[in-house]
Computed example of a mutant assay.
Amino acid sequence: MRLTVLVDNTTLTGHYFLAEPGLSIYIEDGTTRVLFDTGYSGILVTNALKMGIDLLRVDEIVLSHGHLDHTWGLDALLRLHTEAIREGHARVEPTFFAHPDAFLTRSLDGAGEVGCHLSVEELFRHGKVLLTQAPLWLTEDLVFLGEIERRFEFEQVPPKGYIYTPDGIRNDTVADDTALACKTPEGLVIITGCSHSGICSIVEQAREVCGDDRIADIIGGFHLLNAPPEQMQGILDYFSEVRPAALHPCHCTGLAAKIALARVADVRETGVGLHLEYG
């Protein structure tokens, strides 16, 4: 399995890519090409072009959850596909994977929409759409983890904002937050979006679904910007027991959290342009 960071809050030093508060990771597992999240704007297309990655050949597009910094880049991606069709260029019709709540309207701090502004019906015009709360294997080794069971009290944080459902408006617990896990010879590689459901809960679900307790790496957002001390301590205690071989925290993980995590694990630099291979 190989992955490349297309969108993150920072770029690797010495690389002339664009960055923004968002996340997108390109993955190759065997012959299957997967795009995990799309960032906030259209820079994933610009960065992919500079890296020689053809987004028109992506087979599967996975959304970690419905927030704007992970889904609004879909506009640029769909424009890319539309232009390819109009100009007669080769493309793969992608399949979109997400939790059913990922396309519901969300509001936060007076902003009327902080969720995905594309509907499921609109996505259906551009490819297949598969919504599921259950884990789903995308390849023999790569799995969509589905709705995460929230297992740890120290990761429970008050909900922020509101989500608009067919049954009415409710507090937004970001139930759609999910992740990917890949089985490799070194152990599991876990790829997260924002970890609203709790980074430790995500790891536990990955270990359970994949039947492997070894964690080779975790890359993505850990949702630890200004984390409360009790939450941070619980996570540090958990990782001290799990002992992941490496961590690549990025996006919504603050500097203080990265420094704290480095006390219990091998924290490595992450940014746009990072390329990793496993197995």
Rank of each mutant, 00 (worst) to 15 (best):
I148G: 03
F124L: 10
V120N: 05
V209E: 05
F103E: 03
L145R: 05
N171C: 11
L138T: 01
T105A: 13
E153M: 12
Q205S: 04
L136P: 01
K128T: 13
F97S: 03
H117V: 05
C182D: 02
E121G: 02
R125F: 13
L130V: 11
S119L: 13
L123N: 09
H196N: 06
E208H: 12
F144W: 08
I199Q: 01
V203D: 00
D141P: 06
G198V: 05
L123I: 07
F154Q: 12
V129H: 07
E113K: 05
V120C: 08
A175K: 09
K160D: 12
G110T: 14
T178M: 03
F154E: 06
I215A: 07
E208C: 09
H99G: 02
K183E: 09
H126T: 07
E93Q: 13
E121I: 00
C194D: 15
T132N: 09
D141Q: 13
L188V: 13
P135M: 10
L142G: 04
L142Q: 05
S201P: 00
G211F: 14
T139K: 11
E121R: 12
L142V: 06
C116F: 04
V209D: 08
Y164Q: 11
F144P: 00
D177G: 03
R151Y: 01
H196C: 11
L188Y: 09
I169R: 11
F103Y: 04
I148R: 04
H117P: 11
V129C: 12
R170P: 00
D167P: 02
Y162Q: 10
L118N: 00
I148A: 04
D176Q: 10
N171V: 10
G211K: 15
T105F: 06
D177R: 04
P185V: 07
T105Y: 08
T95H: 07
R106D: 05
P94A: 09
L180R: 03
V120L: 06
T105L: 12
P166W: 09
V174E: 12
T178N: 08
D141S: 15
H117W: 10
A134Y: 15
P166M: 14
E149P: 01
P166A: 10
G115K: 03
S195N: 05
C182W: 13
R106A: 06
P166V: 10
E113D: 13
L108R: 11
S119T: 13
P159W: 05
D176T: 02
L180I: 03
F103A: 04
C200K: 07
T139R: 12
H196K: 13
L131V: 07
G127K: 05
G112E: 15
G115Y: 07
E149I: 10
I202N: 01
D213Q: 14
T165F: 15
C200S: 15
Y162S: 12
E204L: 11
L136H: 14
T173E: 09
E204T: 09
L136C: 11
E149L: 15
I202H: 01
H196A: 12
S195G: 12
I199P: 00
V174W: 08
L142S: 01
C182I: 12
F124E: 12
N171S: 13
A111S: 14
Y162L: 15
L188R: 00
A98E: 02
G127I: 06
H196D: 08
